Simulated assay, not measured.
Amino acid sequence: MSAKDKCSAPEKCAAARQPSAMVAAEDPDLRAVVLVAGIYDLAATYQATLPGIRRSIEREAGISVSALAERSAMYHAENIRAETLILHGRLDDRVPVRQAEMFADAVRRGGAVTLLKLFDCGHNIPLPQRRETLRPLYDRVFS
């Protein structure tokens, strides 16, 4: 069950807005999770990102070290048990590809099957490329 399924009023439920990686870290019953161009370390992103993204981080997480760590999937990655597929653009100007690589390594250290698929694009991965990558995971999980 997803965080959205657990919330009777999703538009008012913080869990429904929680990043998928954090839901996966907290829900051991998930079979698979797909993460697309995600921010996994809020502190690192906050320091190096665009002003609009910085404001979003301030609004959603706050800026204290503990608040950023609490909401950063990087610090909870080893708790993920679901098969994890991470999709990220090599040319992403919002979230450096290195963050996705480090997150994939952290999830693997926790023992979850993890695949990091990198694309020759920026932050927005074209849907046809995503579909091609998702199909094998969907076939395994839903068949």
Results as ranks from 00 to 15, higher is better:
107 V>E: 05
74 M>G: 07
17 R>T: 07
105 D>G: 06
88 H>D: 01
110 G>H: 03
30 L>P: 03
62 G>K: 06
23 V>N: 03
87 L>Q: 15
7 C>S: 11
140 R>A: 08
50 L>N: 09
48 A>W: 09
89 G>E: 08
138 Y>E: 10
1 M>W: 08
22 M>H: 00
87 L>H: 01
95 V>H: 02
128 P>Q: 11
67 A>H: 11
119 F>G: 04
1 M>F: 07
26 E>N: 10
111 G>L: 04
110 G>L: 06
118 L>E: 15
64 S>T: 15
50 L>G: 02
136 P>G: 02
66 S>I: 13
105 D>A: 09
73 A>D: 00
112 A>M: 10
64 S>R: 14
51 P>S: 07
110 G>D: 10
15 A>Y: 11
103 F>Q: 03
80 I>H: 03
107 V>W: 09
99 Q>S: 10
136 P>I: 02
38 G>A: 07
62 G>S: 08
103 F>N: 01
84 T>P: 04
96 P>V: 10
139 D>A: 14
125 I>N: 00
132 E>P: 00
133 T>M: 03
35 L>T: 06
136 P>N: 01
75 Y>R: 04
118 L>F: 09
95 V>I: 14
135 R>P: 01
76 H>I: 03
49 T>N: 03
38 G>S: 13
17 R>Q: 06
137 L>K: 00
61 A>W: 03
71 R>N: 15
64 S>V: 13
36 V>I: 11
120 D>H: 12
29 D>M: 12
44 A>E: 09
16 A>M: 04
5 D>W: 07
60 E>T: 14
136 P>C: 02
80 I>M: 05
96 P>A: 14
104 A>D: 00
32 A>H: 04
7 C>V: 07
